[in-house]
Design a protein around this nucleic acid. Structure first.
Lengths: 96, 96
DNA sequence: ATAATTTGGTTTATAATATAAACTTGTTTA
DNA sequence: TAAACAAGTTTATATTATAAACCAAATTAT
């Protein structure tokens, strides 16, 4: 009936992060923070979880002398995102 | 950018309950349990929260001798549900 | 030069949440 | 009349989301 929702994606901030990453080649920490409006701490934690799940990859380097954390969605992450969207539609259809 | 998601609706079970109720005149506890696959305990708790929020109403009575708990969505609940669906679309659009 | 502020984060503490297990009350069946 | 079932509720637990506090390095102000 109602499919189970991937708990990793059923989280406001993680979903926002994935939503941004689904639309761009790569996004760094600062950009994600700006787009999502999240606090640094929260964003850091959620990025870790998405990384641990294999949904995104994180590449740490420097832009000039400043640290920079670049994030990309993985194929697995993109698929999970699509599946989540599909699953959610089951829940939302009544509200159209 | 990303609108805030109503935390009362951003919950797998509560959303499923609202989804069912959005489509029918009224549904009783047993029916909701069957449709959502939830445990009684969980369902009971989430129904309470939706009631406290004014999103649904609960009417207790008897069907024959057996207790029955009938739930209906309220206008406020229906509106909240619509708003939630709209807000969510912002998050999902990248995944289409 | 050095003190103060900003940047780009991470770690840790807390409060809220979802969830199931255990329990209750009454009914039906063996 | 004992056992099993129905329809829930209460309570305990484990997870989560989130922000506050912290840290290191770079930049800016004095």
């Amino acid at each position: 009936m109602f499919p189970k929702l991937d708990p990793l994606l059923h989280s406001e901030l993680r979903l926002a992060v994935m939503s941004v990453l689904a639309g761009v080649e790569e996004a760094d920490f600062t950009y994600l923070k700006k787009q999502t409006g999240a606090t640094s701490g929260n964003l850091s934690v959620q990025i870790d979880k998405l990384t641990a799940a294999g949904y995104i990859t994180v590449e740490k380097g420097f832009k000039g002398k400043m640290p920079r954390t670049a994030c990309r969605i993985t194929p697995a992450g993109a698929e999970a995102f699509r599946n989540y969207v599909d699953a959610l539609k089951t829940y939302l259809s009544a509200g159209e």
